[in-house]
Nucleic acid binder design. Sequence first.
DNA 1: CCAATGCTTCGGCCGCCACCGAAGTGTGGT
DNA 2: ACCACACTTCGGTGGCGGCCGAAGCATTGG
Lengths: 228, 228
Amino acid sequence: MSNALGVAEIAGLVGEPARANMLLALGDGRALPAGELAACAEVTAQTASGHLAQLEQAGLLISIRQGRHRYYRIASPDVATMLEAVMVVAARSPRPAARLRIDPDLQRGRTCYNHLAGRLGVAVCDALVRAGRVAIDGEVAHVTPEGLNFLQTWGIPVAGMRKHPYCRTCIDWSERRHHLAGAVGIAIHRRCLELQWIEHHLDSRAVRVTRAGRQGFERAFGIVGAGL
Amino acid sequence: MSNALGVAEIAGLVGEPARANMLLALGDGRALPAGELAACAEVTAQTASGHLAQLEQAGLLISIRQGRHRYYRIASPDVATMLEAVMVVAARSPRPAARLRIDPDLQRGRTCYNHLAGRLGVAVCDALVRAGRVAIDGEVAHVTPEGLNFLQTWGIPVAGMRKHPYCRTCIDWSERRHHLAGAVGIAIHRRCLELQWIEHHLDSRAVRVTRAGRQGFERAFGIVGAGL
DNA sequence: CCAATGCTTCGGCCGCCACCGAAGTGTGGT
DNA sequence: ACCACACTTCGGTGGCGGCCGAAGCATTGG
């Protein structure tokens, strides 16, 4: 039925701290860029690149190139199941192991290079789509006339930014759900900072929604709780 | 939430061909002595001992000492579940074939402890199943009434061997197929030796099919080429 | 165009670990 | 008592592979 060599090969790929860290970071189905996975694993970009290539070649991950980024995600539910099964055993293992803590702040809201991501980013994107201000067609997003109007009055000079990477989606946080990237995404992020709706954690990419932000996100976007 | 170090540790233990072989041999919940596991993994007793100690310390296996033997078995259903999950991924992996050099003699035919394995072992098992003489149900195999008759007339005293490890299957590492183990498997091997259908390579577990064996395997089992 | 950024490839270093020979411990059989 | 057998421990060797520095594409933005 199955051979031990194949099993050892797969398990061996997981059995390396750097790769295990990357796989676990992707464990919930998100797609993350290579650089970020390198940070998760605490190795340099070169090392991570090699690991990711192995994982993809073995069929554990698949990658999508988006601009100069390369997003990786778990290839199939089978792989996720396997990871969970290993985690169960690892948790029951008598060997105490150091725990790598995942910052819950990062999951709530963060910047993805220069636009909003995390639950907050998804919430903003959803709100814009629901309000008919943005229309998503695959990887490309369009700002509708009402959207242009809205952004303008909100304080974003949309006029000058009709350029190529205008508005697009980013496959990222919270599986298969988009958030806005591109020029519009960046502008929104910048405007949120200007308005002091969010503030950055020092030394981290996590963002915190301020009290003013809570009100602002609710009034302008209809987001209650500001994605928290 | 979960710790990557623990995961890597567990997966790393499985990610070694020798250990993976042992774990898979124990995958059905049987308890096997260290020596047999060493044979399964095709390493010396010392090496196997070290591996087994690691697996036990990590909580994947537990051992019972019985006389001068030491029987190992899977520590918990969680571990078995994990192994199956890895096997599923390994089966779907685009790299199914072994990249490890396999001794062609061993692949053709060999003994697995004391029964036939390799292509010859698989061919014999297949032939018996095809002829309705053996029925395989998962890891357990049953000899049908016709099978009893056949073995008897072939020269195997089946009458006295209704004991516990009667007839079971063993997963072959090089062929990824089942072959017969247990008392019946051992008896078949012994009978083949008696009939001089096979002879052992000196100093190896490889077996060679003699000219008489070629005829015999074809006439009795319908195996042409005797699995070569 | 050029500079910045993200990722990949190449080359060499170094540590870990699987492996086996030899010797040691414990159990069973005679 | 003796030997045979199953397993373990120890020590030394060799190879595999993870790691990073440096350099090489590719994309984006100015």
